[in-house]
């Protein structure tokens, strides 16, 4: 748990990076700090591992003011990933990953095992271990960067635009992989980005920064549903309904499988279900991991009034227009009239 209490950071030259910022990050969750460049989000992050110290207010980690902690110990217990990665070019991938474990004095066997574990976790083949960073692609380098940050099992992970320098396809892939990893590692993550889509995708909670202050701190859903002011609304962009659809899983909006659309579903599936299993729906069926946006896309392209959500070959629910609209708190009267 990380707590910011009335934190102000003013640099010696008089510029104020952040002013009176308060929020707390619950243990095991991911909080994304998002805002335009120069809004103080990176400074805020650096206050956590004391790369910067606040001018006023306190930053506490698990209830202890972090200025009472030894900064070297604090940093060794805090993973740190930056956009530029900053791999050590004179060391192999394995040695890079082993940096912090070595600093804190793990024995060779334990380090060896941990490096292997992390290569697997980051989906890097073991062969990379003895290669040098200069031999890797951008995506691979950032995987190594993340592996290095996780090496000593830190309680807190700080990530400063970790995927910002990657091409869109690699970025998307790494984001998805990282979401997976995030579920497995139970680390408190503070993630900085200027990309609202990335924020909505990665964050359990999002802190939106405007010059030096947190304007809104809430869950992605809440921010999309109810942007606090014009700045937030502008920052999210015109298409916030789409964004919301994109981050909502179909399981949240779907109706019961035996409801009013049962017949439509039966008809729909019967036609294509010669075999069993999810794949037999011929792209029409949705999986529980699909977003509502994907569901809407397929609804628009198909004649069916509703689509089944299938898990392990079993229909667990249906999604129709009205379910999607209902999730916005409005009912589609026109649609109801039609059915």
């Amino acid at each position: 748990m990380i707590e910011f209490e009335n934190v102000t950071k003013t640099y010696p030259d008089g510029t104020t990076a952040i002013e009176n910022v308060s929020f707390s990050v619950e243990a095991g969750t991911t909080t994304v700090l998002v805002g335009p460049s120069g809004c103080g989000k990176t400074t805020t992050m650096k206050l956590v591992n004391r790369l910067e110290d606040p001018t006023d207010g306190t930053v506490s980690v698990d209830g202890t003011d972090n200025r009472e902690l030894d900064e070297i110990d604090l940093r060794r217990n805090t993973g740190y990933v930056i956009q530029e990665i900053g791999l050590f070019d004179h060391r192999t991938v394995g040695e890079n990953i082993a940096t912090v474990p070595k600093l804190v004095g793990w024995d060779d066997e334990r380090i060896d095992e941990r490096v292997r574990e992390l290569l697997d976790l980051m989906d890097l083949s073991r062969g990379f271990r003895d290669q040098y960073p200069s031999e890797l692609s951008g995506g691979q380098r950032q995987r190594v960067g993340v592996a290095r940050a996780l090496a000593a099992d830190p309680d807190v992970l700080l990530m400063d635009e970790p995927f910002g320098a990657l091409d869109p396809i690699t970025r998307d892939r790494l984001q998805n992989e990282f979401l997976d990893i995030q579920e497995r590692i139970n680390t408190t993550i503070l993630f900085v980005t200027h990309d609202i889509d990335e924020a909505l995708k990665m964050g359990d909670r999002i802190a939106i920064f405007d010059v030096g202050e947190v304007v809104q701190y809430d869950t992605p859903q809440a921010i999309l549903d109810d942007p606090k002011n014009e700045f937030v609304a502008d920052f999210i962009g015109e298409d916030r309904s789409f964004k919301r659809l994109d981050i909502t899983p179909v399981t949240e909006v779907m109706g019961p499988p035996d409801g009013e659309y049962a017949a439509a579903i039966d008809g729909n599936t019967d036609a294509t279900t010669a075999t069993d299993g999810g794949s037999s729906y011929d792209g029409e069926a949705l999986s529980p991991d699909d977003s509502v946006k994907a569901a809407l896309d397929r609804l628009l392209r198909s004649d069916a009034p509703a689509l089944p959500v299938v898990e392990n070959g079993e229909v667990i629910g249906v999604v129709a227009d009205e379910h999607i609209r209902a999730s916005f708190g409005r009912r589609s009267d026109a649609r109801q009239g039609a059915t």
């Binding site: 805090t78 050590f88 940096t99 940050a149």
Partner: peptide, 15 residues
């Protein structure tokens, strides 16, 4: 030696 490398080293708790 690049700033980023130093920044990373600092952030990882190297004295």
């Amino acid at each position: 030696v690049s700033e980023n490398t130093i920044d990373a080293a600092r952030g990882m708790g190297m004295t």
